[in-house]
């Protein structure tokens, strides 16, 4: 039971981090209808900068710079490539982001090489005892940070002018443009926000108990894709629920690996994808996704 609770708490906390990544993914999709396969490399870029800068500037300054830089990278991808690609179908744009991802990931993993970069975070490897349940401090911080950021984002989405512009664009971009909303700014900001969220997530993906940022980190980020799609690509709520489902599934399957030995080693890495397939079989648009209707 104790193990179960520990795994559950860990799962929820890592799920909150996945939710951050998935949220950025969904925001980009809502604002520009582009499925951003370069998301994992945005995350890697943010994490890499934090890890490289922190010996020079200390953790917090590095974090701020890393987050800002990831936002700039995201915005630059939008401004330099997505905006200029003159295509009618968004599937082609998805492939463009794959191209971007190949370039960025290759260069970053080359820079990282075989190193494992420490992030120098202030929480280190200390743990918190809640009754009999032991949880790493980083996990608690991750959970609260993610929850705070998500709340902040949802409030902004609901109440600020920026949020209203974003939602109007997602609803009907032509009408939104006629109402004076500048679509370019909306999509630019969406990419920037997604980049920043991904960079924060990168930090929490690489702190204790993970050894640090290495070339496998972008693979960890890929698990946020099922999180986004099983909740529904066009639903922010879906991203949160999807993130939690993926996190908890992964944590439990990894934790009970020995009891699940008949499924083979490393089932925890595959489990999120299997859950995604099962959910897509039942609900092709995801849990909270709106089934697309079209008027003829």
């Amino acid at each position: 039971m104790i193990t179960f609770l520990e795994l559950l708490v860990n799962g929820i906390s890592i799920g909150a981090v996945y939710a951050l990544i998935a949220l950025g993914f969904v925001v980009i999709f809502k604002a520009t209808e582009v499925v951003n396969f370069a998301h994992a490399s945005l995350l890697l870029a943010g994490g890499y900068l934090v890890a490289r800068l922190q010996p020079l500037t200390g953790f917090w300054a590095a974090l701020v710079i890393g987050v800002a830089a990831a936002a700039v990278v995201g915005a630059a991808i939008e401004f330099l490539i997505i905006r200029r690609a003159n295509v009618a179908s968004h599937s082609v744009l998805a492939i463009v982001t794959i191209g971007v991802d190949i370039v960025l990931t290759t260069e970053l993993t080359r820079q990282i090489g075989t190193e494992i970069l420490a992030l120098g975070d202030p929480w280190g490897d200390s743990v918190v005892h809640l009754g009999e349940v032991t949880v790493a401090e980083t996990r608690i911080v991750a959970l609260f940070t993610a929850a705070a950021l998500i709340t902040l984002f949802l409030l902004a989405f609901k109440y600020t002018g920026w949020g209203i512009a974003m939602r109007a664009t997602a609803e009907d971009s032509e009408t939104a443009a006629l109402m004076g909303i500048r679509l370019g700014r909306v999509s630019l900001s969406a990419w920037a926000v997604a980049g920043a969220l991904a960079a924060v997530a990168a930090v929490f993906l690489c702190v204790f108990p993970t050894p640090g940022l290495d070339r496998g980190t972008s693979l960890a980020a890929i698990k946020a894709f099922p999180a986004a799609i099983l909740g529904g690509l066009d639903s922010t709520t879906g991203a949160l629920v999807g993130g939690l489902i993926v996190g908890v599934t992964e944590a439990l399957m990894t934790g009970y690996q020995n009891q699940l030995a008949f499924l083979g080693r490393g089932i925890g890495d595959v489990a999120p994808f299997l859950v995604m397939v099962v959910i897509l079989l039942l609900r092709p648009a995801g849990l909270f996704g709106i089934r697309e209707t079209a008027r003829v």
Partner: peptide, 10 residues
């Protein structure tokens, strides 16, 4: 389209 792209990652 791209939905299938993510699903096939599985």
């Amino acid at each position: 389209g791209a939905y299938l792209g993510i699903a096939t990652l599985a």
